[in-house]
């Protein structure tokens, strides 16, 4: 067992982990942050996407021990001061979710996409979300949700 310290959603945590402990299990089991989900186990579905030091990563394919000293953001940390993130708002407004299981990972992936490409075309959104599977929505409304968020962020930035 090894002791690691990570800052998750702004809070520092020090915990002991086995080297093999997957980040997703660490977040879910040890920190009780169950918004990050496990869908495929093999890094295709993206239900487990979180941000490590600002980059989107599949937490089922990352060891917790590798994150010693890292800053992590999960879906629980996306809303600020009770205000939904524009992506959360977009998914709600545009019916970008049904069962909701893929949604946290999808939103975290989309957040990284918008960081890299603040004004993506629909096609760029579709390719940017290739690491995330949704079995419910057919992606149509997810594309609309990300578009909504991009527009909102860009409008605020322009003001």
């Amino acid at each position: 067992m090894t002791t690691i310290t990570v800052t998750v959603n702004g809070t520092p945590y020090t915990r002991t982990v086995e080297p093999r402990t997957l980040l997703v299990h660490f977040l879910r089991e040890q920190l009780n942050l169950t918004g990050t989900h496990i869908g495929c186990d093999t890094s295709q579905c993206g239900a487990c996407v979180v941000h490590i030091n600002g980059e989107s990563v599949k937490s089922c394919t990352t060891l917790a021990i590798q994150c010693d000293g890292a800053t992590i953001t999960t879906i629980e940390g996306l809303a600020q001061n009770g205000q939904l993130h524009p992506l959360q708002e977009g998914f709600w407004e545009k019916h970008g979710l049904q069962c909701g299981f893929c949604t946290p990972g999808m939103i975290m992936a989309a957040a990284d996409l918008l960081q890299q490409n603040p004004d993506p075309t629909d096609d760029e959104i579709r390719h940017g979300l290739e690491g995330n599977l949704c079995r419910c929505t057919g992606y149509e409304n997810i594309v609309r949700a990300v578009r909504y968020a991009a527009d909102k962020i860009n409008t605020v930035a322009a003001d």
């Binding site: 890094s43 996407v49 989107s56 990563v57 599949k58 990352t62 990284d112 290739e130």
Partner: peptide, 8 residues
């Protein structure tokens, strides 16, 4: 891969 795979 995808965005996340390319990040790692």
């Amino acid at each position: 891969g995808d965005l996340q795979v390319r990040n790692r």
